[in-house]
């Protein structure tokens, strides 16, 4: 059973990535599509980031007692100031480890 679920998920994943590359996709997208698609990275990645920072194990929003939140805010500031991927990931992880060790 797990193999079937895995293969199904693999096929679905591949086809969602391929769908607009295929010959069935419209050859020319309308003019407004460029503006619309320019929001794809920001909107979709934000939708992944925010719940993984705010939502706890019991599917509830955790604002207090959540070391991920201040660590993520610090990472946003570092990303804003340095524009460096390494500095952002490094500072966020370091902040989480310090907070967990000190307080939580």
């Amino acid at each position: 059973m797990i193999w079937w679920v895995m293969i199904f998920c693999g096929v679905v994943t591949f086809f969602t990535r391929f769908v607009m590359f295929s010959d069935m996709a419209p050859k020319k997208l309308p003019d407004w599509s460029e503006d619309v698609l320019s929001f794809v990275p920001v909107a979709v990645l934000t939708a992944i980031i925010v719940p993984s920072v705010l939502i706890g194990a019991d599917n509830a929003v955790e604002i207090t007692d959540n070391a991920h939140l201040p660590a993520a805010i610090l990472a946003v500031l570092v990303a804003w100031l340095t524009r460096s991927v390494l500095a952002t990931i490094g500072s966020g992880l370091a902040a989480l480890w310090c907070l967990n060790w000190l307080i939580f």
């Binding site: 929001f39 909107a43 990645l45 934000t46 980031i49 993984s52 920072v53 952002t88």
Partner: peptide, 26 residues
């Protein structure tokens, strides 16, 4: 807490591409 590395990766990607006011609204 290694799983925290993944939202951090996406933060590193998203923050620098927030340029227009409409990006912040999105």
């Amino acid at each position: 807490s290694l799983e925290f590395a993944i939202p951090l990766t996406f933060i590193a990607v998203v923050v620098p591409i927030l340029k227009r006011r409409a990006d912040f609204i999105a």
